[in-house]
Design a protein around this nucleic acid. Structure first.
Lengths: 207, 207
DNA sequence: TAGATTGTTAATCGATTAACAATC
DNA sequence: TAGATTGTTAATCGATTAACAATC
């Protein structure tokens, strides 16, 4: 009933490619074409599409518009979900601006910080609130997801506040692994670790 | 001989926690303590440490300083590696500033862009060069790793240039999957996909 | 010693890939 | 039809977890 994580990720990526295809007037696409765009195998694409329960016009490839439709049914919520960015440093600001430019069913509608200079400032059309008003704003604005970009030493404390006020999903960009209860979905991304991993494999391939 | 990817990632994370321990004057640490900091199991920690070939003083936990040492031997290169950021938009600037503040064996020493207004500007002490001088700068400054933050429609073109001039590792933040030859190590991170994944699991858990 | 901890092999789990019958 | 493509089961691969003997 719940799709595998990797499949969910790829569906998100397929959708973007498919929307691009639509813009270019391409109405059908073969599994091997979609695979090539993402540098994976055609089998993987077909398996993912099997999971979503869509079947193609055999032999003519997948109907791009229909496929986008079924992916939307799976990934999107009817009314969309509201998102907040907590921690308005360089990274928080950049990420806010970045997301605002992009997809629509996930609406960044607030940011939070503790710095008095940032409160009430507007970034890419999104207002910054004091962290002390977290509970109130989350409730009144029906925010369910948070993107965390606070400094490492504040991460654990802020995370427990987020759980307390009922946040359901966290995308964590801090360098600290967060302790959250099991009913909160957590995705952690550590760019320093990613860069160190690249460096390791570069170093090892030099031989 | 080559460590598993996930182990490399965790070693990078362990190191950060261990350095923190050192600052706090903690000289030894048990596998279950390190595990708790990262919300994984003690077995996993021990298995990772087995991979690096370090053995503890039995019963007293791991010597923090020694363990940091062996992790450094594995992850770091003697002289460090030089890194460039290609694409100086909001995200590129924020990431540059973010990294500059952090670890030292990976030196961000140049940024590149095509926008004439950005050329010769200095961000967090790092100068911006025109993309047309890529080959020259990569050679003279011995750059082996690139962080890519260019717009999606430029991504493939820029990637092939990077491969041509001999870049060995790419951390790709664009929304486009890059075609690279097999001797270039590629790590792709798509924050929109990450956020959509969080949204999917939040949506599904509401039931 | 008894209890706690480590190091390591075997079992399990999740995800990818191979194989192939069915379809147009 | 023959060739290309899809949908799906079985096999493989990589990573995690369970089990447990060895150590202090």
């Amino acid at each position: 009933m719940l799709l595998p994580e990797r499949t969910v990720e790829r569906l998100s990526e397929y959708r973007r490619s498919l929307l691009q295809c639509l813009e270019e007037g391409k109405t059908h696409i073969y599994s091997h074409e979609l695979a090539a765009l993402h540098h994976i195998t055609a089998v993987q694409v077909r398996r993912d599409i099997m999971f979503v329960g869509y079947t193609s016009m055999q032999r003519k490839g997948y109907d791009v518009k229909e496929l986008v439709g079924v992916i939307e049914d799976i990934l999107d919520s009817r009314k969309g979900l509201n998102v907040a960015v907590v921690g308005v440093g360089n990274l928080g600001r950049a990420i806010t601006t970045y997301f605002i430019g992009k997809r629509s069913k996930l609406n960044i509608i607030a940011t939070f910080d503790v710095d008095a200079n940032k409160i009430d400032r507007v970034i890419s059309g999104v207002k910054c609130y004091p962290l002390s008003r977290l509970e109130e704003i989350v409730r009144t604005k029906d925010i369910s997801i948070v993107i965390m970009t606070v400094p490492a030493d504040a991460a654990r404390e802020v995370a427990s506040q987020l759980v307390e006020v009922g946040i359901r999903g966290i995308l964590n960009f801090t360098t600290v692994s967060l302790p959250v209860t099991r009913d909160v979905y957590l995705d952690e991304y550590d760019m320093i670790t990613s860069l160190e991993k690249v460096a390791y494999f570069v170093k090892m391939s030099r031989k």
